[in-house]
C-alpha cells in the first residue's frame, strides 16, 4: 500500500507529537479513563517505550534476516542443495507456529524480560525471509542463470551480480512481513515483561483503563503502519527500474 506523501507526513507528525507531548491529547482520551485514573500512561515515557519497542524489533530482525538470507543462499548452492527440501518444508511448517507460542516457550528457557521476546522475534523472523529469499533465488529464470555462467561469471560473481539483485525485492518483502509480525509479537512480549508499547495496553487491560488501551493500541498500530509503509517504499525502489519481478 502506498500512502500518498501527504498522508504519510501527517501520520508521522501525529505520531511524533503523540509520543513527545502525550498530554496534548489527554482531553481526547479522558472520556475513556475511569474517574480518578490517569489518562496518559505514567509509569514510563511513551517516547522511551516506543524506542524500546523499535529497538527490540530492529535488534532481532537484522540478525534474523541476515541469517535467513545466508541459509537461503546456502541451500540454493549445489553444495547445500541437499537441504533445500528441508528448508522449504520448515519455512512453511514453522509459520504454522503461533508467535505467542514461541514467545511463551522462550520464557522457561531464558526467564522474563527482553530476552524471550528477542528470541521469539529472531526465530519467528527467520521464516518469512527464508521463504521469500528461497522463492527469489530459485525464481531467477533459467536462461538468465545459463547466460551468467555462459558469460564466464564465477559462482560468486553470479550470486552477487545477478541472483541477489534479482531476488532483492522479494527478500525485502520478506523482511517487511517479518518486521510487521515482530512489531506485533513485541507488543505481546510485554506480557513477559519486555519493555515496549504493549506494556501500556496490558496496564490498561489490568486496570480497566481504556484510555491506556487505546493510546497503546494506536501507537503500536501507527508504528506498524509506518514501518510497513517505509519497507514497502524500499521494496518498490528496488524494483522501480523493472516491471518484471522474479516471483516463482
Amino acid at each position: 500500500m502506498k500512502a500518498a506523501p501527504f498522508v504519510r507526513l501527517a501520520l508521522w507528525t501525529l505520531v511524533a507529537a503523540f509520543v513527545l507531548w502525550p498530554d496534548l491529547f489527554a482531553p481526547l482520551l479522558r472520556p475513556l479513563a475511569p474517574d480518578g485514573m490517569p489518562v496518559i500512561y505514567d509509569r514510563a515515557r511513551l517516547a522511551d517505550l516506543t524506542l524500546w519497542h523499535l529497538g527490540l524489533v530492529v535488534a532481532a530482525i537484522i540478525p534474523s534476516a541476515l541469517l535467513a538470507t545466508a541459509l537461503a543462499i546456502l541451500v540454493t548452492r549445489p553444495s547445500g542443495a541437499e537441504f533445500l527440501p528441508l528448508a522449504r518444508a520448515l519455512g512453511g511448517f514453522g509459520q504454522t507456529f503461533p508467535p505467542v507460542a514461541v514467545l511463551a516457550l522462550a520464557v522457561p528457557v531464558v526467564g522474563f524480560g527482553a530476552w524471550p521476546t528477542l528470541i521469539a522475534l529472531f526465530l519467528y523472523g527467520l521464516l518469512p525471509v527464508l521463504e521469500n529469499a528461497l522463492a527469489g533465488l530459485s525464481g531467477v529464470p533459467r536462461a538468465v542463470m545459463l547466460a551468467a555462467d555462459g558469460m564466464g561469471m564465477t559462482p560468486r560473481q553470479r550470486l552477487w551480480r545477478v541472483e541477489l539483485p534479482l531476488a532483492a525485492p522479494l527478500m525485502v518483502e520478506g523482511v517487511r512481513i517479518s518486521t510487521v509480525i515482530a512489531i506485533s509479537t513485541a507488543a505481546i512480549g510485554s506480557t513477559v515483561a519486555a519493555p515496549g508499547l504493549g506494556e501500556v495496553i496490558i496496564a490498561g487491560l489490568n486496570a480497566n483503563n481504556l484510555a491506556f488501551v487505546v493510546q497503546g493500541g494506536l501507537l503500536t498500530a501507527a508504528l506498524a503502519l509506518i514501518v510497513h509503509d517505509a519497507l514497502g517504499l524500499a521494496a518498490h525502489a528496488l524494483k522501480a527500474h523493472r516491471r518484471v519481478t522474479v516471483a516463482g
Binding site: 507488543a187 495496553i201 481504556l210 488501551v213
Partner: peptide, 25 residues
C-alpha cells in the same frame, strides 16, 4: 478497499483486540 484491508492486517493483534473493546463496549 484493498489498501484499507492491508492497513487493518498490519495493525498488531494486541492493539486491535484492545481497541475494539471501545466500540463493542
Amino acid at each position: 478497499v484493498l489498501g484499507l484491508l492491508t492497513m487493518l492486517q498490519t495493525i498488531p493483534s494486541m492493539a486491535l483486540f484492545g481497541m475494539l473493546i471501545v466500540p463493542l463496549g
